[in-house]
């Protein structure tokens, strides 16, 4: 019996606390598998955000740090500068990265920090119960936008990947999704490539992953995948925005 698929050593044994059907679990797996397959688990250091993924330090089997809300890229900068040969990644949600941590991510990219950011965009604040995020879609309801996001009141959602792709040292910028198996496979490829580029020391790498939040979207897990495909993908096109010449 050949094993086609089994749990990666990059994840610990601890079951996750995520809500049923929340795709954080899939994204954790893709990051952990990538590190394992690239032989990087032994020198990886991950930085967990504040948000639903705040307990990620218990789920990844490599060394981890828990950063203050929005500050994971700064924390990762400190780690990578101390251990330049390590594989450093931040795992952040849209509240953490696109809101309070917007300056940190822009400047980590500006400096070309040789780290990989996994940016999970689920268009809402999950852990705190469904508030509007910078990535919340126009018209999408949230506990702080009860009638739906009004663009005249609080603007349009932030397209982080497109923004960061304008920064010279952000050498690899790709948006992926996990709403179906083909997309999951592509997401894995992008995440793995980001780590490879990091280890080549070419510059800052980020993979934005469109993700679901069944609980705060008020949908079943299966409906949430469908909602993501029909509403988020049109506004957040799934594509590569930048790849270094050396890797093309």
């Amino acid at each position: 019996m050949a094993v086609v698929f089994e749990k990666t050593k990059g994840l610990t044994e601890k079951p996750t606390h995520y809500c049923p059907g929340c795709t954080h679990g899939i994204i954790h797996r893709l990051v952990a598998e990538s590190l394992e397959e690239l032989g990087l688990l032994d020198k990886a250091v991950g930085v967990a955000p504040v948000g639903c993924a705040v307990f990620a330090y218990d789920y990844f089997s490599c060394d981890m740090q828990e950063a203050a809300h929005g500050r994971a890229p700064a924390c990762a900068t400190g780690i990578k500068r101390v251990h330049p040969d390590s594989a450093v990644f931040t795992y952040q949600g849209d509240g953490d990265l696109a809101s309070i941590g917007a300056a940190e991510i822009v400047h980590a990219a500006m400096r070309g920090e040789k780290v990989t950011t996994i940016f999970v965009n689920n268009a809402i604040y999950g852990m705190t119960g469904g508030q509007m995020a910078p990535t919340t879609l126009v018209g999408q309801k949230a506990t702080t936008a009860p009638l739906g996001r009004d663009e005249n009141h609080c603007g349009m959602p932030l397209r982080i990947s497109e923004m960061l792709a304008t920064i010279p040292k952000a050498v690899f910028v790709e948006r992926v999704s996990v709403h179906d198996v083909p997309n999951i496979l592509k997401a894995k490829k992008a995440i793995k490539k980001a780590f490879e580029i990091q280890m080549k020391g070419l510059g800052f790498t980020i993979v934005e992953v469109l993700s679901t939040c069944p609980t705060n979207w008020g949908k079943t897990p299966v409906e949430a995948l469908k909602w993501l495909k029909e509403n988020m993908v049109p506004y957040y096109p799934v594509q590569n925005f930048r790849t270094p010449e050396e890797v093309k």
Partner: peptide, 20 residues
Amino acid sequence: IACGSCARMCPDVVIKVEKL
């Protein structure tokens, strides 16, 4: 058919897939 799709879609690594 041991395609592994179910395992890849699972957020909680519940499924192991083997091929004969």
